[in-house]
Amino acid sequence: MTSAGTDPEAAILIEQVGPVRRLIMNRPKSRNALSSAMIEALANAFDQADADEKTRVIVLAANGSVFSAGHDLKEFKAHRSDADKGEAFFSDIFNSCSALMQKIQSISKIVIAEVQGTATAAGCQLVATCDLAIAVNEADFGTPGVNIGLFCNGPGVAITRSVPRKQAMEMLVTGEMVDAHTAKAYGIVNRVVPKEYLRIVVDKYATEIAGKSAEALKFGKSMIYRQDEMSLADAYDLASKVMTHNLLGDDAVEGIDAFIEKRKADWPSLK
């Protein structure tokens, strides 16, 4: 096991175990709020993980009982005294948060959310944005902005792309929390597990994915998110083009040869 970024005061702790890099939000006293500093730290950590050739899967985790409570309302309040009543700051932080969410889906590595507790507002958005999410039985999820006069529009973008429209709107307009099993039924998380098995299950997923063709995963992740808002015809056109390029790659050559020869593939992209 190797590790880096283990300064106990850091906003993000980084653990590297083989090809799996775990990014751990480390502000439990502030409920891992997505403050401007936390958003910047996460954006930098994802960039570094994506650029690292040894890292094949990224796990997003958190310390404390709360995964993330969303934006830092105390930070919002502090900027009410700005000359523009906080308008510039609010615009900047929402734009930065939106850029972070898009970064998670645009980087080449698969991102798994390891959800050990409550995820609300932009914290729920963060879970819904990750490629996969595993949660404990005790976790709960919600978009309660409406309760404080601030509709969760940003989180709504991610939620409505994971959750059926009626259920998404119910979450957004009532602000009520849903338990982990309901979140699984809605499509926010993939699996719900006992707390003592969370790390084991996440590591199993991460290790299995890390052993797949990195070239195929890169092609696939990019294509799936790009086609999501296309017409059916355009989506199939894109899929055909991407699969053609994928098939010309070294990993596809090796994978097909290995299948025909009844042997395990030795992926060039993992060397």
Rank of each mutant, 00 (worst) to 15 (best):
M1L: 09
T2H: 04
T2R: 06
S3I: 00
A4N: 04
D7F: 09
D7N: 15
A10P: 13
R21E: 02
L23I: 03
M25R: 11
N26C: 10
N26Y: 10
N32K: 08
N32G: 07
M38Y: 00
A45E: 00
F46Y: 00
D47V: 01
D50V: 01
D50E: 10
K54Q: 08
T55N: 12
N63G: 09
V66C: 09
F67V: 02
S68N: 03
G70C: 01
D72A: 07
L73A: 11
F76L: 13
S81L: 06
K85Y: 03
K85L: 09
K85H: 13
F89R: 10
N95P: 12
A99C: 10
K103A: 11
I104M: 09
S106R: 14
S106A: 14
V111R: 04
A113W: 07
A113S: 05
Q116G: 13
T118N: 07
A122G: 02
Q125C: 11
L126Y: 07
L126I: 06
V127Y: 03
T129Q: 14
C130A: 03
C130R: 02
C130N: 01
L132N: 05
I134L: 07
A135H: 00
F141K: 12
F141I: 09
T143A: 12
V146T: 11
V146D: 12
I148G: 15
L150P: 13
C152I: 01
N153G: 03
N153P: 07
G154A: 03
G154H: 07
I159Q: 05
T160K: 11
V163C: 09
K166V: 05
L172H: 06
G175F: 00
V178P: 14
A180H: 11
T182C: 13
T182Y: 10
A183F: 04
G187S: 08
V189N: 00
N190S: 15
R191M: 14
E196R: 10
V201T: 13
D203E: 12
K204I: 03
Y205P: 13
A206H: 13
T207I: 05
T207R: 13
A210M: 04
G211D: 00
E215C: 08
F219P: 14
M223R: 05
R226D: 12
Q227K: 13
Q227V: 12
M230I: 05
S231M: 06
D234Q: 15
Y236R: 11
Y236C: 04
D237F: 08
L238N: 15
K241A: 12
M243H: 04
M243I: 01
M243D: 03
M243P: 01
T244E: 12
H245K: 15
G249W: 03
G249S: 14
A252H: 01
A252P: 03
V253M: 04
G255P: 06
G255Y: 00
G255D: 04
D257G: 00
F259W: 06
A265G: 02
D266N: 08
S269G: 15
L270G: 05
K271N: 15
